[in-house]
Nucleic acid binder design. Structure first.
Lengths: 212, 212
DNA sequence: TTGTATATACCTGAAAACCAGTAGAAAAAA
DNA sequence: TTTTTTCTACTGGTTTTCAGGTATATACAA
């Protein structure tokens, strides 16, 4: 790679240990120039307004805004800037959301120095980059992640919530001022959407899917 | 503090970003000498066998062994060595388990450079140290964490698991080769231990408490 | 406007869960 | 060895859930 112009890079992470670690790791690479580091999404947005940046290393868990939403905002304001997610989350759904929101790659924090540098350069070349472990997650989805979540209506979510609190059909009906027969119907719809046989399994599945 | 003898320190963490970050943070402090870093619990144990170490910064999520168990092993082998947990987990129960297993303090990875150094020195003086956020977690337990988990018997856990899979009393009885009446009894005991009114709420509570 | 989704409501009957007890055998702890 | 816990099993009765349907009003989108 020829060193025509250094890559300007921003780190966004609220853990100073991580920021220092990344800085140290990238220190040897003369083609990378760390412009600035931020611990808040809002400060990043202010800065981006006024500056040209090639690439952002973006943590997902930030104090003020989710990195997933932040990624979208960054891409709207500055589409040319590459965004690499750098997080501890290994959930397929989060990775996909990030990519959906325009991220140019997804790295896990167990990444090594060499791999990190490689990924940054690859992203600059327009590739979508995943760290090794991320690739393997994407290649081998587990059962749980593959079954797509049922889409529940507002009312169904409400009733699911009340079932999980131990209310009976009658009690839910009283609370929502509708007939218990209506609640029965919702119950059955919920169970058929989740493909389960009773309330216990329903709550289990809903909870696994983080729907309650 | 007078610089009679440097503090010998070991870092145990499988994320090289974090290891580099800590190293950089402690670099300025001449009283601290980083002896070695490990990414596996087993390599730490080998090293400890042969060397005197003042203090260990110990991550909780390691590939080969839980930091909680590792802490206990370290303390058995080398009781004088101080152990500071350094992790992302904010759960009261984990913090308490670490202290129970002999840790001399608990730090979160959002700690800053100054605080980290202060904590290391304080630990060397025999104090039990918590980073700022940890202190606040310990001081303000939330509802969920306060209610102590019911102690379930082996059989009860087994049955709870099967209930959560949607099996009926009869099916569970068949599977375990006992009378359905027995399962009924276990069911009622489970519900009374969790103080809930039906299976749905039971599964919800068990799942919140991470018992299934 | 003509579907599609949502929320509502009903019937009937069977199956399962839940309540309130008691109690003996086996296993584990003291 | 004694005590305690756990696992087992029962009686008898009430309440709730579940399974098979059907059906109407409303709202929202194509």
């Amino acid at each position: 790679m020829c060193t025509n112009k250094p890559i300007s890079l921003i780190i966004v992470d609220d853990h100073s240990i991580v920021v220092e670690g990344i800085k140290t790791m990238l220190h040897g690479d003369l083609e990378i120039n760390i412009l600035e580091t931020f611990s808040l999404g809002s400060s990043l947005m202010n800065f981006l307004n006024r500056t040209n940046t090639d690439i952002i290393l973006l943590d997902i868990s930030l104090p003020d805004i989710s990195g997933i939403d932040l990624c979208k905002k960054v891409k709207l304001m500055s589409p040319k800037t590459k965004v690499l997610a750098l997080s501890n989350h290994t959930e397929r759904s989060i990775i996909l959301q990030m990519i959906q929101n325009g991220a140019n790659g997804y790295l896990l924090k167990n990444i090594g120095s060499m791999e990190l540098k490689d990924c940054i350069h690859a992203a600059m070349n327009g590739e979508i980059v995943f760290s090794r472990e991320v690739s393997s997650i994407m290649a081998n989805p587990n059962m749980e992640e593959l079954k797509e979540l049922p889409r529940l209506t507002k009312r169904e979510k409400e009733i699911l919530e009340l079932i999980s609190k131990g209310l009976t059909t009658q009690e839910i009906a009283d609370k929502l001022f509708v007939s218990p027969l209506t609640i029965e119907t919702h119950r059955r719809n919920l169970m058929s959407k989740f493909k389960v046989r009773n309330a216990a399994e329903l709550i289990m599945e809903a909870s696994k899917s983080k729907l309650i």
